[in-house]
């Protein structure tokens, strides 16, 4: 699934780095705990989180994440948006809860990490 398709499904807005139409997302991991994000391989994965700060970006960088879905209507500040652009990470902002986002993406065929 493309990043734009995911954004459409969760009624989201794309910010940060522009969406790469050639990047295919196959899996998702939902966590507000960055310690857990660092434990797993994040290939072809979208991180779904309500944690909206620079540490979300740094953790994503170390984990090689290309796309992060920020739920619960959290608003990234200018610093975070700038960092996302620098690190070439696309953010999707959604007003939906993490549970709703996860349900929608799972129903659309996105797989869990485990």
């Amino acid at each position: 699934m493309t990043i734009k398709e995911i954004a459409r499904l969760v009624d989201g807005e794309i910010v940060g780095a522009p969406a790469d139409d050639n990047y295919e997302v196959k899996k998702a991991f939902a966590s507000d705990l960055m310690s857990d994000v660092l434990r797993y391989s994040m290939d072809e994965t979208v991180l779904i989180t309500g944690l909206c700060n620079n540490q979300t970006m740094r953790t994503s960088e170390m984990s090689d994440l290309r796309v992060v879905l920020i739920g619960r209507d959290k608003q990234p500040d200018e610093d975070m948006l700038e960092l996302a652009e620098d690190l070439e990470i696309t953010l999707i902002k959604s007003k939906y809860s993490i549970f709703k986002i996860s349900g929608i993406l799972y129903g659309a065929g996105i797989q869990p990490l485990y």
Partner: peptide, 15 residues
């Protein structure tokens, strides 16, 4: 609150 401090750091470093 920053998303850390879950007690996974040193075990993850070892891994």
């Amino acid at each position: 609150e920053m998303g850390y401090g879950a007690g996974m750091g040193l075990p993850n470093i070892k891994k």
